[in-house]
Nucleic acid binder design. Structure first.
Lengths: 106, 106
DNA sequence: ACAACATACAACCATTTAGTTGTATGTTGT
DNA sequence: ACAACATACAACTAAATGGTTGTATGTTGT
């Protein structure tokens, strides 16, 4: 994952409305308007939150008739988790072996 | 973890300079000026990044003479990781048992 | 065909952010 | 005591963010 992608996913997660949307779409597909109905803000605002999540890769959309069905991408969530695992590995003192890990194609 | 705290940690992680600082201070203690020496920006800018990380709880400081030594808080990193684990659990369809999990004191 | 619906996007506004420079406050070593 | 160092913070700027309203485009069901 590039630094730009990391910026995008963490930024996407740094808003409670977006985290809530992500929870919902990880549990199952929802149209944008179904999502929008759940929040005390305009449809356009929710649509922009969905777009931010989509650009970050945490959410994907597919067309179904006149609706766009959004679902969460659990693989993207896992790749964020592995960045945190890497940080924990650094804490564990493994930094000295980073080069070796890179050589082994982690 | 409150939603405000979640906002703060994800926002803190959404900047590559701060992620890099966090990596360094997880590997070991560093003074603010030692950290600042590693980046192509002013001391004040780095000091503000350290302050953001500190406010988020990902970093703590202790005084040592005229220096402030910063170190990363691995427990805070782990609590971010567990928020992601919870999202993954939602994806796995466990949402229906959230109440039960809460009763069991997860 | 067409009215209603679902989505996208532009333009705008207020607030926050990431950077800058400059200044103030402590701490240390001679 | 004091010069140099380490940090903190204020004030400023440019850009990004999260919200708004309004408009355009495409899809559906009668």
């Amino acid at each position: 994952m590039t630094e730009e992608q990391a910026d995008a996913v963490f930024r996407a997660l740094a808003d409670r409305t977006r985290r809530d949307i992500l929870r919902r779409v990880l549990a199952g597909e929802h149209s944008v308007s179904a999502l929008a109905a759940g929040y005390p803000m305009s449809f356009a605002a929710v649509q922009k939150h969905v777009a931010v999540l989509e650009r970050s890769g945490l959410l994907t959309k597919r067309r179904h008739g006149r609706e766009q069905l959004a679902s969460g991408d659990v693989e993207a969530v896992r790749s964020v988790a592995s960045m945190l695992d890497e940080l924990e590995a650094v804490w564990l003192g493994r930094i000295a072996r980073i080069d070796a890990l890179l050589d082994k194609e982690l």
